[in-house]
Nucleic acid binder design. Structure first.
Lengths: 207, 207
DNA sequence: ACTTGACTAATACGATCGTATGATTTTATA
DNA sequence: TATAAAATCATACGATCGTATTAGTCAAGT
């Protein structure tokens, strides 16, 4: 195995953390290089520019996530089960990559068009999810309604829980890193989504 | 009625839009003052500093929203109905204040403690919502589970739809400002939350 | 041993940042 | 209309920004 602590590695890791914590504009090259114990010019040298480093960090976070989820969407099985698994998977992924939720929020909060790479990933992911939901609707698993809207509802849950770690920690004297706590929250999110999307047998729930 | 176009008003409005679009750090005093057709020193003169202007914008957006929702939480009636109404109200509020969702995302994405004012509002709102959910659980309206987690699930929906306007516009050749479209999305979000939180009569939905 | 290429280091540069300053203009009050 | 207060203005200042420049270090390749 290569030495895992080259200057490039340190820059990349520190940049990911700082961009996540403070955003692109509020994170200076000097902040990153000094924390990474590298020279001021190191980012320009190794990555070309601050902007290029940011893009690289961004893609390195978003791409594997999107690919994982798209793969999950395309597996066989009842649509509702797949969506439950998808939410759980998404949740786990966000939890294993604590910087990712903040990046996703930053992306969502952005004004103007997404960077090309991200837009393409987003389209593929949305297409896969919408396709899955529509299949569920055809097969009678999932309640009727505009599939894109349902897709937004699905995605909203794990993103928010990945984010709400601070909130969860505040609330319930629970450690948001405790795997047991993670599992509880995960099961909860998955169950809420499943139930929200399902077709309820009787008309027990008025509109 | 006072003239609605003083320098202070223009600064405030432009600042709100630009902070929402680009964030605090990426929005310069010069950007705001020039767009507001005011002098460079106008922000310092009228608000004290850029930071003070930002805080003022933030509070002016978040406070009325929180108060509206807290009032909604404390009204009588079946808890599930109240939550459905709450989501609808929240959605409408976000839609009437298009800058608000981005601010909320920026707040959520922030690292470190919230500003005092916001933390207090958040606590009050969460308390009201959790209380409402717990009441619903006692009264048999709402499924069991940790109320704070359910509260996060509830809040996630309207925030995401307020945000996903861009996504919705991309997807379905719908105009996200068309009141009819708004109403459809709103009803959808409200219904999803209601169904997700409800107690399902039979065990039709496996965990 | 010498050269070459990859990397690190120190510093400088121009641009832009938020704010301060003092003059000038506008507005309001007497 | 005279005068005080409020607001606007042009400009300057020091700090910090991202990047360029140039020199120095070090390990392979020959």
């Amino acid at each position: 195995m290569k030495t895992p602590d080259t200057t490039v590695d340190r820059l990349f890791l520190v940049a990911r953390r700082r961009f996540a914590e403070r955003g692109y504009a509020a994170t200076s090259v000097r902040d990153i290089t000094s924390r990474a114990k590298a020279n001021l010019g190191a980012i320009t040298y190794h990555f070309g520019s601050k902007e290029a480093l940011y893009q690289q960090v961004l893609v390195s976070l978003v791409e594997p996530m999107a690919n994982t989820l798209i793969r999950e969407c395309n597996q066989p099985g009842p649509a509702l089960d797949r969506i439950g698994a998808l939410v759980a998977q998404y949740y786990r992924h966000l939890h294993q990559n604590p910087d990712l939720p903040r990046f996703m929020l930053q992306i969502l909060a952005e004004h103007g068009p997404l960077p090309r790479v991200l837009a393409e990933l987003q389209n593929r992911l949305r297409g896969a999810l919408v396709g899955l939901i529509e299949r569920g609707q055809r097969e009678g698993d999932i309640r009727p309604g505009p599939a894109p809207l349902l897709a937004v509802s699905v995605i909203a849950q794990p993103i928010f829980f990945g984010l709400a770690r601070r909130v969860v920690a505040q609330i319930g004297r629970m450690d948001p890193d405790d795997p047991a706590v993670v599992e509880v929250a995960l099961r909860h999110a998955s169950a809420i989504v499943r139930q929200g999307l399902a077709i309820i047998p009787q008309g027990g729930i008025p509109a």
